[in-house]
């Protein structure tokens, strides 16, 4: 994937990564959300901490709730966050 992804984080995922959003260009081998999580986890300690319990982290792609099998396209906005607790 040559074109950058816009990646946004919320709640404790944001606190662990240390930024609320970043633009990253993962390698072509990153095709799905699961691939992206694996790649991010190996970037540095902060990302590793955010995705340490990766089963707990939820995601959205282009503002729709998504799952780890969702295929990513260049320019997508991918969000990672804990299970929602509104209402």
């Amino acid at each position: 994937m040559a074109a950058p992804l816009s990646i946004v984080y919320f709640a404790w995922v944001r606190e662990r990564v240390g930024v609320s959003e970043e633009s990253l260009s993962p390698p072509d081998s990153v095709a799905t959300v699961a691939d992206l999580v694996t790649w991010l986890s190996n970037l540095d300690q902060r990302h590793a901490a955010a995705f340490k319990d990766r089963e707990t982290v939820r995601c959205a792609v282009n503002h729709e709730f998504a799952d780890t099998s969702t295929v990513l396209r260049p320019g997508d906005e991918v969000a990672f966050f804990p299970p929602v607790t509104g209402g």
């Binding site: 404790w12 969000a79 804990p82 299970p83 929602v84 509104g86």
Partner: peptide, 27 residues
């Protein structure tokens, strides 16, 4: 509507305690 709002809308609650500490509410 309130049941679905709690589980299908992107909101997150953080509790702040009297001692200044805080914690994200778990689903």
């Amino acid at each position: 509507l309130i049941d679905w709002l709690k589980t299908k809308a992107p909101f997150w609650k953080r509790e702040e305690f009297q001692n200044g500490e805080g914690v994200w509410v778990e689903a």
